[in-house]
Design a protein around this nucleic acid. Sequence first.
DNA 1: GTCTATAGGTTGATAGAC
DNA 2: GTCTATCAACCTATAGAC
Lengths: 191, 191
Amino acid sequence: MPTEPPSRRPGSETRAEILRVALELFTARGYEGTSIRDIAEALGITKSSLYYHFAGKEAIIRALVDDRRDELDALLAWIDEQPPGPDLLRRTALRWVDATSPQRIRGMRFAHANRPMMQKLADEGGDIRTWFDEVVARLVPADAPRTETLRARMAFDTVSAALFAALGTDATEAEVLQAARAATIALTEPR
Amino acid sequence: MPTEPPSRRPGSETRAEILRVALELFTARGYEGTSIRDIAEALGITKSSLYYHFAGKEAIIRALVDDRRDELDALLAWIDEQPPGPDLLRRTALRWVDATSPQRIRGMRFAHANRPMMQKLADEGGDIRTWFDEVVARLVPADAPRTETLRARMAFDTVSAALFAALGTDATEAEVLQAARAATIALTEPR
DNA sequence: GTCTATAGGTTGATAGAC
DNA sequence: GTCTATCAACCTATAGAC
């Protein structure tokens, strides 16, 4: 690993706390709906202290998404080790879905609640969605019809889709993941 | 049709214009990221004029989602006319997906960009997502495992999921709809 | 590292003339 | 129906003491 994850820099426990609370509030109320003051008060500190740890509001969100990058890099490395074959798409998608951590789910809910901001980050090239293009590019032939590429993307996005479908219901996260897994299988059915 | 659509009340052309621009801006920048001033300036009027047509910012978003309700009611009525059978879920979901209008897509993008607000509306009982519970309840047995209910919901949400998967790509709406249709078929495969 | 105080700007909303 | 003028409340961010 070449660079050190910013959220784990040693001797900065407060920083991690800030990120934890910010993720929670940004998810519940959205980025624009959450003020720096809200975050500070939830932590029992003042805004100014928060500015000591982060250059600004946007720096917080940036640290939040950067944290999710490593997983993607690991997946890409794993793909490159695999023998090519017709089932590689399904195997990779299932590997991704099955490895869904609670933290990743939190990240998804965060992304859901802040799509305009995620779009802005995407336009600057620094978001997970863009990085995912690489994954799909290695699994679907470049000359495949675009609907096939979309379907492959959807096969990776089933957890996100299932979370969305489960909104307002009392489904547990385990049930959501199970439904997502079934959907990934359905979407990678060879035709 | 029992009640008159609020957006078509006669003699209120400006009102429709406001809704059109608000939908566009709320989708691009989000509800909190769009000020009343932004909407007014895009229309070439002042904030005060806008307040003549709508009681406030939230009244605008409420009018926006109310517009989408009729379609759901029509689908429910259609379901009640159908003979029950094992293929009713797929037929209904495909009917819904195939009837996707450009306006509905705009509505979905809007919902994507404003999930905290949609959640707030849902908590008050006035959102499309809640109304959809009725649809699924008529198509999936009440004692079915919850993952099956989730999968049924996902079968209806494929356009939304495909739109999400297509973010950042140059896929056309036709291609998105085609991918969504394929996904709906895959997700309603009898097992 | 954390605080108080405050600058400098935007927000949603209202009053009242025309 | 549309305007100008204005408000209190809120925001991000900074300066400087401790």
